[in-house]
Design a protein around this nucleic acid. Structure first.
Lengths: 206, 206, 206, 206
DNA sequence: GATGAATGAGACTTCATTCAT
DNA sequence: CATGAATGAAGTCTCATTCAT
């Protein structure tokens, strides 16, 4: 995973009790990182919030970085499980609906995960963002390829990247700056317009 | 500024010598943060790079956060001075040219300032980004207002925000992930297409 | 023994199963200490190597020091059983052969037990060395007494100590620094010469 | 140097005050290691004994190992300065006097430095012993070479090693076990006899 | 009895900040 | 004013030992 400490728990919990502890630590990490930021997320604080001794934390995680990396992976995995199916189901829809769907999906995603997403992204690590982006990119490229004659751009990978990155950034920013906007249908429809306008074959400056 | 001990130097330098010292410290901070990242930017390291004793640093800056805040402000100010005039000069151009100009401006901006921008943004502090955004927003809104009849969106502030945020994010991402793309005219033209497509009055799904 | 909680198992194993456990722990301790050094010999590691839970370890040994003390005693005991008979059998031989025999014995001893001997000696505890020394000293003194008229020294205890200590030290050093020398018959013969030269009644500087 | 942390102070003291601090730390290390053993020699304890904050310790020494390595080097250096000249001056004397001199020297050396020598040797590091041994070995070999026709051994390096190692070990042991013996002239004369008997050309078992 | 989960004192080290010179 | 020495809270991590199951 690039960074040190990798991701394998140093000891696998055998008893139920231990599984609870591990879970508490992971959840505490998630919360502390999300709510108080990465700087505040000291191992002592995490152990504290988890209601567990510092020793227990190190019984299951080899070091702080590994712990945070694991939380990150889990977050990612969780989003993967939630969003990927919804995302892929948009595949069969016509352009307009597909775009609307993607916009909605990204908005939902940020609504749910604002804090953790944000705090984790703060890290230098590749993070979420990239993983998501990477996986979705392929799907979008394939979709654009299938609808090649309905759209203007020809460099599909570039186009896909522009679309996804723009949506992600815009929603992300808004989720930080003006969260209420996420619930405003007009915002969603403007984002849809942004994407459709970009893809649209019509002459731009006739 | 959110943080304590914000941004006023604790003591204004009276003598020339002192002004030089303050300058050295600020420049050292900038360099260390930009080149070695925020973690490595300890006050002792900064003083060292500045060729100044740690005591002197604290003579002029009440604490580390304030020091960094000031550097941030100065960076911002510097960009303001460089970019604002160029930005405002686009004001008089027709839509197409104006958009092209803004795209070029943002690309230039990131080309020059990747490291420092990036390192500072890492902070939780509002940062650059926002300041820039805030100021430009007004200009863009005004411009859109003047060209109201050439564009589709009616909520001008929202539209301006979408445009600026999308451009900023896309260029920022690319500057990190694929810096060479910043020099590719095709990338610039796609970004232009994105914005024009969004603003364009033509019916999107007639 | 100087240290607290010295050397009595906190609980004597009644069942066969328990005896096996105790044995496994002691053997694991021996191996870990010998092969990985005293620093690596944590109680958890020992329990692990013994294939036993840490709880079991503490069921039979009150603390780490006691555990190691016991291992030490057993090592000593083992050498006692192996070497003492051979040592005592030299008793009846004439001086030259007796000395040769002792030299050979000490060399063998170190060849076999370099690691454990070494690792245990590292401890501040009196250790092996002394126990061995103490027991053998008496035998040597008795022997010298019997051969009183063939040797120069009259303070027999001092002489015995000098002889044994010199041999032990020289072999020990060589076993660490140049182990191959232990197999070189010339080394053995030089050691023999050292002892005989010391004991020899002949005028040294006539 | 072998071990980590090397030996360069991380920062050279400029002011007299700092030099005093550094000295206090080194002396405290020496004392704590000598009097309480290596295990007890924690950096906090050392700082405490030095009457200095833990931060000051780390201002001048990069880590514990380096600190101890430096103390070791200094000890060695100190002995070098004290003993080497005396040792080399024995060079010109006839065999009997030279041996007596060496015995005396080694006894003096241990009388002065029992504790520190002992504690430092405990370490796995090459240590004192070896350094001393190595340097002296050459001198002794040269001496034996010059007196080649007065002595029996022909493998001079081996002989030198046996002599030095035996003396060192015997004196070392005695300094731990029966320190008063170090002041007993009879002990010295027995050691002399040991060496002379070994070197003596007379047939041992004619 | 056995297991292994849990504990927490304490070791090492960093770094923002103060203070004597 | 400038210097840099000194401080110590706080962070990461280990490991002997206890305790619930």
């Amino acid at each position: 995973m690039g960074k040190p400490g990798a991701s394998a728990p140093r000891k696998l919990p055998r008893q139920e009790r231990a599984r609870v502890t591990v879970e508490a630590i992971l959840e505490a990490t998630r919360r502390v990182v999300a709510e108080e930021g990465r700087e505040r997320a000291t191992t002592n604080r995490i152990a504290d919030v988890a209601g567990v001794s510092i020793g227990s934390l190190y019984q299951y995680f080899p070091n702080k970085d590994a712990l945070i990396a694991i939380v990150q992976e889990r977050e990612e995995e969780s989003f993967r499980r939630n969003l990927d199916p919804r995302f892929e189901s948009l595949f069969d829809l016509p352009l307009l609906d597909a775009v609307r769907g993607v916009v909605g999906l990204i908005i939902d995603y940020h609504r749910e995960s604002r804090d953790i997403h944000n705090a984790l992204q703060e890290a230098a690590q590749p993070g979420f963002h990239d993983a998501l982006m990477e996986r979705w990119l392929g799907v979008v490229v394939a979709y654009l390829d299938e609808h090649r004659d309905e759209i203007r751009p020809t460099k599909l990978e570039l186009a896909a990247r522009i679309v996804l990155e723009a949506l992600e950034a815009l929603v992300h920013e808004m989720s930080l700056r003006d969260p209420d906007l996420l619930d405003d249908p007009e915002y969603a429809s403007e984002l849809t317009a942004l994407v459709l306008g970009y893809l649209s074959p019509r002459p731009l400056h006739a």
